[in-house]
Write a protein that binds this DNA or RNA. Sequence first.
DNA 1: TAATTATAATTAGAAATCTAATTATTAGAA
DNA 2: TTCTAATAATTAGATTTCTAATTATAATTA
Lengths: 145, 145
Amino acid sequence: MKETLHYLLMADHLSFQKKLLSSIKGTELTPGQPKIIDYLTYHDGAVQKEIADACHIEPATITSVLLGMEKNGLIIRKNLNGNRRNLYVYLTDKGKNASKQVAGYFDMIEKTALNGLGADEKEMLISLLTRVNNNINTQEVVENE
Amino acid sequence: MKETLHYLLMADHLSFQKKLLSSIKGTELTPGQPKIIDYLTYHDGAVQKEIADACHIEPATITSVLLGMEKNGLIIRKNLNGNRRNLYVYLTDKGKNASKQVAGYFDMIEKTALNGLGADEKEMLISLLTRVNNNINTQEVVENE
DNA sequence: TAATTATAATTAGAAATCTAATTATTAGAA
DNA sequence: TTCTAATAATTAGATTTCTAATTATAATTA
């Protein structure tokens, strides 16, 4: 069981997440915020729906986390071009500072995680995980024969 | 960013999890239960603390999920050998039925996820994920240089 | 143009999760 | 043996997350 893909994906992801959460202990960030900040770092001005998809959480969840981030001054949200349905999300200066911190934490843990892997092995791992991701997201799950 | 390890681990894990949750829709299982059932399938009679560690969740969380599972007749918990601190957890017959179902779902999604990968590639992926897991769990995260 | 359909965001309510503190019990040290 | 330290489980309270339903708006179709 320890050798199944799903067990390892869970173990790796949650262990990584746990390291990240202990990293942000000193900051005023809450557990749900780093991944959103990470996404906004590279996609400032994204619409809420887009952030939800990228972070693999539901729109309802984004609403509540962004509300907290807005209250805390990390982001601002605004309508654009007379479109009153989409809300575009931007990091404030405070949010950008947090973004730099968060990026540093992610990098450190990533390095730790990949320690001892050669460049070819890293590449292989990323490639295989990408293929798995495509498989899960594009294929129908079929009943066992 | 889409190519970072942590992003792929999150994407793979959460996409897998989402498939699993849609699989258990028809059952009366709640989202927190399958991974515990999966663990008990191979470790019936485990102590709560052990289950928590294996499932990468906190003891407090286990307490609340197991309470629900016990109420629903999926497990029983008992003290053994006069030790009144440890609680040993066992699947009931109902729990064992659920276990068979859950194992089937995990297998199906696992197959879907690994579609198109050769035996050597699967082996490589498992091996790399295991090394990453060891790295995260055994090494200290170091400040960036 | 008007009606229908689709989409984005939110709300409400529940489950899963966390941390910190507490309780009970066991193990180890003086 | 008694006191102290460590451990397992629980409780309390907060955050994150979900689904389902709702609201508001935009896009499409008749």
